[in-house]
């Protein structure tokens, strides 16, 4: 660059030919530049448009479904729905709400606990063939259709162990179904924790458990919580495996492992929607609406928890 004729420090006595060459050259560069800029801009615009389009394709159904449910449910929503049990094809949803809450709590404890523990194991210790075996088993588990889980739960727990339709059978079946999501996200999140954290902890003489609890798990919490949310959302949204294992009841859930059939919101959504009575269809929309509210609440609460825990995070 310093040899170019427009450099102030270069001698002024450049030959005309040189100057001409330079000017032609710079014009050429300019033209080229403009051209490649416009093609690039054009391509970028196409890429952006496609991105927006696909985003729209994803968002539209979600908005339509949620909007439809809210519009159908909200105008006629009565608070008695929250306070009375279902009777026949009418009444309220108190027993289903309680049942869904019990199921969510149970799945949170069983699948959350098992998933976090196995995620810790997979990320920290299972770096060998056995670990890979466990990992693929978990992926297979995640790929099994929910109806198969329901049927296996029915054959094994409800029939073979004589548990009958019960909370225990429902919880175990649902938990096994969603545990891979928690363990996978926990494992991945733990692997992404900077190795400097655990090394620093080791160098300070902190025990493995202390490092895990106070440093690495805390730093992996956003990922772990995402996995738990997905797991709980799947569990609350499922009907098929529960029909086979938890059965249905119009009473409040009985907190017993066996012989304790219970109601849940997805049952109401699924069963009442196809009934001829208007009240039943209304209950179906109410149940769907309550499920949506529940999931939104779950997400909001988890965001708050996560952001409180990440006050001192490196990536803030």
């Amino acid at each position: 660059m310093s040899e170019l004729p427009n450099n102030p420090s270069s001698p002024q006595s450049q030959s005309d030919a040189d100057r001409l060459n330079f000017e032609t050259l710079s014009k050429l560069v300019e033209v080229q530049g403009i051209k490649s800029n416009t093609t690039r801009g054009f391509k970028a615009r196409i890429a952006w448009s496609l991105s927006y389009l696909t985003l729209l394709l994803v968002i539209t159904p979600a908005v339509l479904i949620v909007g439809h449910v809210v519009l159908q449910a909200l105008p006629h929503f009565q608070f008695s729905v929250l306070t009375s049990n279902t009777t026949g094809l009418g009444g309220g949803l108190k027993n289903e709400i309680a049942g869904t809450l019990v199921i969510v709590l149970g799945v949170l404890v069983i699948a959350g606990g098992l998933g976090i523990l196995s995620g810790i194991y997979l990320s920290n210790y299972a770096k060998n063939k056995f670990g890979n075996f466990l990992r693929s088993s978990s992926e297979v588990l995640a790929g099994i259709p929910s109806i198969v889980f329901g049927y296996v739960g029915y054959i094994a727990l409800v029939v073979h162990f004589h548990w009958g339709f019960s909370l225990g059978a429902g919880l175990i079946t649902l938990s096994l179904m969603v545990v891979p999501y928690v363990s996978k996200t926990t494992e991945v999140a733990l692997r992404q924790v900077p190795s400097g954290y655990s090394e620093g902890g080791e160098a300070l003489g902190l025990s493995e458990g202390y490092i895990l609890r106070r440093i690495t798990l805390k730093s992996a919490l956003p990922g772990v919580v995402t996995g738990i949310i997905v797991a709980v959302a799947i569990a609350t949204g499922e009907t098929a495996p529960l029909l086979y294992t938890a059965g249905y009841s119009q009473n409040l859930p009985k907190l017993a492992v066996t012989h304790s059939p219970l109601g849940y919101l997805t049952y109401a959504v699924w069963t009442f929607y196809n009934q001829p009575s208007k009240a039943a269809v209304q209950l179906s929309y109410d149940a769907a609406f309550l499920l949506i509210v529940g999931v939104v609440l779950l997400i909001v609460i988890s965001r708050i928890v996560v952001s409180a825990s990440q006050k001192h995070s490196e990536n803030r």
Binding site: P194, G196, E199, G200, G201, A203, I215, K218, S219, K311
Partner: peptide
């Protein structure tokens, strides 16, 4: 016998 590393590695806490 403690250790200090090349890259400073404070923990994600206050």
């Amino acid at each position: 016998v403690g250790m200090l590393f090349q890259r400073a590695n404070p923990f994600p806490m206050s």
